[in-house]
Design a protein around this nucleic acid. Structure first.
Length: 376
DNA sequence: TTACCTTTGAAGTTA
DNA sequence: TAACTTCAAAGGTAA
């Protein structure tokens, strides 16, 4: 996907926002490949997803606005009006709530858009194990204001590491005073904390001593080759999550509940198809979140590069992968060859998943087909 | 115990 | 610069 913004731009999110609408062409191209039934297919997809998703307003909004493909490229539309600016942060995300609880986020910061107010942003996903201070490191709108952040959020640079130090709780404005004991009761701010990556007391800490979700103990992920002492001490800072990853985290539990599936591979396929069924506005929420993720990440770890994590994971066996892909292609539902049940096509798991999880197709199809549409 | 699977997107690497 | 590769999350599965 082409980058429309010159590298190094201040606004890390701009490409995302543009990309979100640039996909338009791709969608149309794909649609063209599907033949004349494209419009019907889209409509059906919409209705199918509406059956499987919450019948909430976001989708209704999408319908009100018309199909995303009808939105002029590069335009932002909200409530039937063309906007000159991208829509503001549309959802009240979990970490915003926590900021509010902690006192960084005043209620006035909780932005919402009328049409999306009922969009239930996932309830915070609880981590099984979490450092009680973890929620202290999160996002604030103030944090991303151009130029210098507000005093209480200005990351103090650690002279030893050069890494900005997140504000100490005592430095946070007391909008919502919180007792120390209550801090540990706060649910997860960014559900990026997996139980598997909870840093032990002496590893994986941000130089400030407060673990950040993107920091993972080097013990968890060790290089196969013997790392140097310096590398060994260096905490593993994870990549910031992209828009789709944020969407997956939010929607996974829902899909799991609906499909009674727990296999991530199968769930992810469903989520991938649902992602494409989202309206531009709905996707924009996640692009915006991802943009802020990256922005905060770059503020917290200005010297970090995705390169740092390269080779940290064991690579796939290329031959095996290629073989598998070749095998999967046989009989796969390719975009240019929709199966007879093309209405369900976008929600159907791939053949490789079906081989592994035979129940996926049936369950998903049954849940996806609205009453009275079985004949399709 | 750990890689694999599976998805999309961002960013790095390679040709 | 285009194409390719890796890694983010998740959790069951298989080696």
């Amino acid at each position: 996907m082409p980058q429309l913004e010159p590298a190094g731009g201040d606004d890390l999110g701009a490409p995302d926002e543009l990309i979100a609408f640039q996909d338009e062409g791709e969608e149309q191209d794909k649609g063209a490949g599907r033949g004349s039934a494209h419009g019907d297919l889209d409509e059906l997809k919409s209705s199918l997803v509406s059956e499987t998703e919450n019948r909430g307003q976001p989708l209704a909004l999408a319908r009100t606005l018309g199909k995303s493909s009808q939105i002029p490229q590069g335009r932002w539309v909200s409530q039937g009006k063309t906007l000159l600016q991208p829509p503001v942060m549309l959802i009240q995300c979990p970490w915003q709530r926590i900021w509010g609880t902690l006192g960084v986020f005043s209620p006035s910061h909780e932005l919402s858009l009328t049409a999306l107010q009922s969009n239930k942003v996932p309830v915070v996903q609880h981590a099984h194990h979490m450092h009680p201070l973890t929620p202290l490191i999160t996002y604030s709108n103030d944090h991303f204001s151009p130029g210098s952040p507000p005093g209480h959020l200005s990351p103090e640079i650690d002279p030893k590491t050069g890494i900005p130090r997140p504000p100490h709780p005592s430095e946070l404005p007391p909008y919502y005073p919180l007792s120390p004991g209550a801090v540990g009761q706060i649910p997860l701010m960014s559900s990026r904390f997996s139980p598997h990556v909870v840093p032990p007391p002496t590893h994986g800490l941000h130089p400030s001593g407060i673990p950040h979700p993107t920091i993972v103990s080097p013990i968890v992920k060790q290089e196969p080759t013997q790392p140097s002492k310096e590398e060994e001490k260096k905490p593993h800072i994870k990549k910031p999550l992209n828009a789709f990853m944020l969407y997956m985290k939010e929607m996974r539990a829902k899909v799991v509940a609906e499909c009674t599936l727990k296999e991530s591979a199968a769930i992810n396929q469903i989520l991938g198809r649902r992602w494409h069924s989202l309206s531009r506005e709905e996707q924009a929420k996640y692009y915006e979140l991802a943009r802020k993720e990256r922005q905060l990440h770059s503020q917290l770890y200005p010297t970090w590069s995705a390169r740092d994590n390269y080779g940290k994971k064991k690579k796939r066996k290329r031959e095996k992968l290629a073989q598998q892909q070749s095998h999967d292609t046989e009989g796969e539902y390719l975009p240019c060859q929709p199966p007879p049940c093309s209405g369900l096509w976008s929600l159907m798991p791939s053949s490789s998943v079906l081989r592994r999880f035979p129940g996926v197709q049936e369950q998903e199809a049954l849940r996806a087909v609205p009453a009275g549409r079985e004949a399709l």
